[in-house]
């Protein structure tokens, strides 16, 4: 456990030294300042109170609060994760560089501990940054609009969980290919294209009317990270609405465990 902690700490420091951490913190601080200005100099309740999504007014006791939460969380989910993938893709290939991996493997540390250390370190970097932004916004919403619902804070956990899901895939790809570019490209492909398409598989199937196609789509839906459905869960949690299905969370958790275990298996078979 100590070894996992040491590797996690170093991954954290690596992110800090490569200005990844500061870059995230800078963007988060900038966004917080923008929202602070909005809260200080505008009538936020009036500004967001009339927001409609798909032509419908938002439900709940305070539609303005719901609108501002969605206005913040959806870009944070998309753009934030985009940046997180970009900045963490090199963690594993960098660890595997000659001269670096030799030293790590010459220490009394198992290959499993190395992978877990990198995983938890990367996840911690993203969690700290996401929580900083979400917590800051939560304070503003609380003071500005009187909504102190802690559900909004859970959004930081959901976003971090989605990152952990994609990061486990990046670790696997990094171990197999040693290429940060490949790990990044495939993660973007899953996050931006595959998952949204597979999430809409039922709509697509009605147009194509093919049982085989539906079965194939269903198969891939359950083996590809369900980031799109987790995005919907994020909105539900932030707004305090009940979660319709826990299946994406369970499937994603299984994916993380499987990806990490397979990474450990491949890593333990490789020579460096």
């Amino acid at each position: 456990m100590n070894n996992v902690w040491t590797i996690s700490k170093l991954t954290f420091r690596e992110a800090f030294s490569r200005k990844i951490f500061l870059f995230f913190a800078g963007i988060s601080t900038f966004l917080l300042l923008v929202f602070l200005a909005v809260f200080l100099f505008t009538d936020v309740a009036a500004l967001f109170g009339s927001v409609k999504i798909n032509g419908k007014e938002l439900s709940g006791s305070n539609p303005a609060v719901a609108a501002i939460k969605l206005f913040i969380l959806n870009p944070l989910y998309g753009f934030g994760l985009f940046l997180a993938i970009f900045s963490s893709a090199s963690f594993i290939p960098h660890m595997l560089e000659k001269g670096n991996i030799d030293l790590l493997l010459s220490k009394p540390i198992s290959r499993r501990q190395l992978i877990l250390g990198k995983f938890f370190g990367g996840v911690a970097v993203v969690f700290v940054n996401v929580f900083y932004l979400v917590f800051g916004l939560w304070l503003m919403i609380g003071y500005g609009l009187g909504d102190w619902s802690v559900d909004f804070l859970l959004a930081s956990l959901v976003i971090t969980f989605v990152f952990a899901l994609l990061y486990s895939l990046m670790i696997l790809l990094g171990i197999v290919s040693r290429s940060s570019v490949l790990a990044m490209m495939i993660s973007y492909l899953v996050f931006l294209i595959l998952s949204p398409v597979l999430s809409s598989r039922e709509i697509i199937s009605t147009f194509l009317n093919s049982e085989i196609f539906s079965a194939v789509m269903n198969f891939f839906y359950y083996v590809v990270p369900q980031t799109s459905d987790l995005g919907s869960i994020l909105n539900s949690i932030a707004l305090g609405n009940p979660i319709e299905s826990y299946s994406p969370i369970i499937v994603s958790l299984a994916f993380i465990v499987a990806a990490i275990e397979f990474s450990v298996f491949v890593f333990s078979k490789k020579d460096y």
């Binding site: 070894n3 560089e97 000659k98 670096n100 030799d102 030293l103 010459s106």
Partner: peptide, 28 residues
């Protein structure tokens, strides 16, 4: 065991002292 590989690479954001601490921790 102690090991010095050829063309070793230490995390370049660490100081000399930091390198010693890091590998000491990894050595348990």
């Amino acid at each position: 065991v102690g090991y010095l590989p050829e063309n070793h690479k230490f995390p370049n954001f660490l100081t000399g002292e930091g390198v010693m601490k890091y590998f000491g921790e990894l050595a348990g």
